[in-house]
């Protein structure tokens, strides 16, 4: 078991990765004076910056030079958010070099996977298993189309990294009354990897959250820390083994969709054209509705139902979903 504070230099060497042999698992190593690189990632609105602030304040409290770097700007709600925290006796670059992060903390599962290449070989990986699946994940809406969320499960990843922890921090936090305290649960997990006094952690956390949510955050931190200490002692607890697959239900058969428009009955009112979710209908030169992109039609029947002239009929030979 290696610790994020185990790296020999605050700054990566010119020739990186020369001393990266992972150590056997055990209890947290005492902090060296060397410093560390902590990368915190998640989705807009989850509280990435709050964790970064806590880690930065904590490092500052230990007498380190600290740089905390993030990029604000574009409407980040629902977008990717990340923060680099670097500390040590002397810190130059505000950003963490790829492959040099001592710890990667992910507030959302797929975001943790996205940044995995930034983690050191012996670095600590801490992730909430909660998924936030964006509308973008399903580009094709046809029957049987897969959701392109990452397929790797917590078990896959924890077995691939040297020191991984994957827990449903959001549910733990919900138990204390606010799912948003999931970030503090993850701080509790991190605290078990960095041997700084628990009192220091609690002090900086309390200084970083609104007074009314101090109790929730104190409980969330304690729960995360307790979980991590138990998981260190018993590696089978390091990931949620109930999650066996992130794959979309497989084996769905493409239904055959037949859309027919009775041109004689269509008066060109445009309702179907405007209301088709896939925008696959159009009016032709004679002001009659036609199916312009049959490939996009999902057979949802909206045009059929809304047509005031009963001019559209859809027949779907839909096989029952074959669930895995």
């Amino acid at each position: 078991m290696s610790s994020p504070v185990k790296s020999k230099g605050a700054r990566p060497k010119t020739k990186a990765g020369s001393d990266t042999a992972a150590e056997p698992a055990g209890e947290p190593v005492k902090p060296a004076r060397a410093g560390g690189n902590i990368l915190i990632v998640g989705v807009g609105g989850q509280g990435v910056l709050m964790i970064a602030k806590v880690v930065a304040l904590l490092a500052q409290k230990q007498g380190y030079q600290v740089k905390q770097s993030e990029v604000h700007g574009m409407a980040k709600r629902g977008g990717i958010v990340f923060s680099h925290v670097r500390y040590g006796p002397e810190v130059w670059s505000p950003t963490i070099v790829k492959g040099e992060a001592d710890a990667l903390i992910a507030l959302e599962w797929a975001e943790g996977l996205r940044w995995l290449d930034h983690l050191k070989h012996e670095g600590v990986f801490i992730a909430d298993t909660r998924r936030i699946v964006p509308p973008f994940a399903c580009r094709s809406r046809k029957a049987g189309a897969p959701i392109n969320y990452a397929k790797e499960t917590p078990a896959d990843i924890v077995s691939r990294v040297a020191d991984g922890f994957a827990l449903d921090a959001s549910t733990i936090a919900e138990g204390f009354g606010d799912a948003r305290a999931a970030n503090t649960v993850l701080l509790g997990v991190l605290s078990a990897s960095l041997a700084y006094p628990e009192a220091d952690w609690l002090e900086v956390i309390e200084a970083s959250v609104p007074p009314k949510s101090r109790d929730i955050n104190r409980n969330a931190f304690a729960a995360g820390r307790e979980w991590a200490l138990a998981a260190r002692a018993n590696p089978t607890l390091r990931f949620d083994s109930s999650i066996t697959s992130y794959e979309a239900p497989a084996g769905l058969l493409q239904p055959k969709i037949t859309l027919e428009i009775n041109a004689a009955w269509c008066k060109g009112c445009d309702i179907c054209v405007k209301l088709c979710p896939e925008r696959c209908l159009a009016l032709n030169a004679e002001q009659v509705a036609v199916l312009k992109s049959p490939d996009a039609c999902t057979g949802c029947h909206i045009c059929e139902w809304l047509c005031p002239d009963f001019a559209i009929s859809i027949r779907t030979s839909h096989p029952e979903p074959v669930t895995a």
Binding site: K15, L116, D117
Partner: peptide, 26 residues
């Protein structure tokens, strides 16, 4: 002038794109 960095950890994972979006209720 200096040695090249060793290749970074190869990860064969491609999570879906997550572009920024307008807020709920925008």
């Amino acid at each position: 002038l200096i040695e090249a960095a060793p290749p970074a950890r190869a990860i064969d994972i491609e999570p879906m794109a997550r572009p920024p979006v307008l807020c709920p209720g925008c």
